[in-house]
């Protein structure tokens, strides 16, 4: 009886996961397969599920004829990493403080921080532009890092606060009795335990910055991230050069995907194990 039921459970579980994976990969496959098709085939009808004559010509075109600015990937990476570091740093302190320190007005502070998450960035774009050009933050990596960090700091604070809450305080108390200061406890004891929470926050902060377009377009001139640079492949009437767009997108997705796989191995899986269970 029991094993039969668990077998059924397994089958259903795998089936749902499989369906979702197909749903996830389908559109991506279709976009990225255009990377290996000549552009006439990429926009042609009927659509081809597999490239008829797989070609690497698009990579060659992208690197030579298209004048695509490859530094844009670098800009995106710097801005993404910087935004991630700033966001993680401020959120980690705030999250820890809100979880571990009892102080007056804590509830109000927490709610206030969360309320910032509801500010639509589009609404603050023009005032931000004015301030940025006044104080020399226009067209700098730092400027964009700060905006993106602001975008993710509130939710990261809450996420980390929630995460710290789930960790028993007793270990840290013991450490404090041993003479460690609050900051040292945070660094040596709470942080390693909070690694899964941190990893999630890091991923949010990075991808928010990596994929953003509208702010980047408005706030940069020479340090344009790749999302803005992609507009090179959109023509006069909004016609799209699918092959080159797909190729440029693939180049953007691949390293991040590898990086992410690496991160999650270290964070979500590796770190969460023994610590919580003890």
């Amino acid at each position: 009886m029991r094993s039969k039921r668990s077998l059924l459970l397994r089958v259903i579980t795998y089936a749902i996961i499989l369906i979702w994976i197909i749903f996830t990969i389908g559109p991506l496959y279709w976009l990225l397969s255009s990377t290996f098709k000549p552009s006439s085939e990429a926009i042609g009808y009927p659509p081809t599920l597999f490239p008829k004559n797989p070609t690497l010509q698009n990579f060659k075109n992208l690197f030579t004829a298209s004048r695509f600015n490859f530094y844009s990937y670098g800009h995106s990476f710097i801005i993404g990493s910087g935004a991630m570091l700033i966001s993680l740093l401020v959120a980690m302190f705030a999250g820890y403080g809100l979880s571990r320190v009892r102080f007056k007005g804590k509830q109000i502070v927490m709610t206030t921080i969360l309320l910032f998450q509801m500010v639509p960035i589009l609404a603050t774009l023009i005032p931000l532009y004015q301030t940025f050009s006044q104080y020399g933050l226009y067209n700098t990596h730092l400027g964009l890092m700060l905006i993106y960090a602001t975008q993710t700091a509130p939710m990261n604070t809450w996420l980390l606060k929630g995460y710290f809450d789930t960790i028993p305080y007793s270990i840290e108390e013991a450490a404090q009795i041993d003479g460690l200061s609050r900051l040292a406890t945070l660094y040596r004891i709470a942080l390693p335990i909070a690694a899964p929470g941190l990893s999630a926050s890091a991923i949010f902060a990075f991808f928010k910055a990596w994929n953003e377009y509208m702010v980047a377009l408005t706030m940069t001139s020479t340090v344009r991230p790749y999302t803005v640079e992609l507009y090179r492949f959109i023509g006069e009437q909004g016609d799209v050069d699918w092959s080159l767009l797909g190729t440029a997108a693939l180049i953007a997705v691949l390293p991040v995907f590898i990086l992410f796989s690496f991160f999650q191995k270290y964070f979500i899986i590796g770190m969460s194990g023994g610590a919580i269970k003890s």
Partner: peptide, 10 residues
């Protein structure tokens, strides 16, 4: 590292 490489051109 990235910042120092790319910031030069900025």
């Amino acid at each position: 590292l990235g910042t120092s490489i790319f910031a030069v051109g900025a």
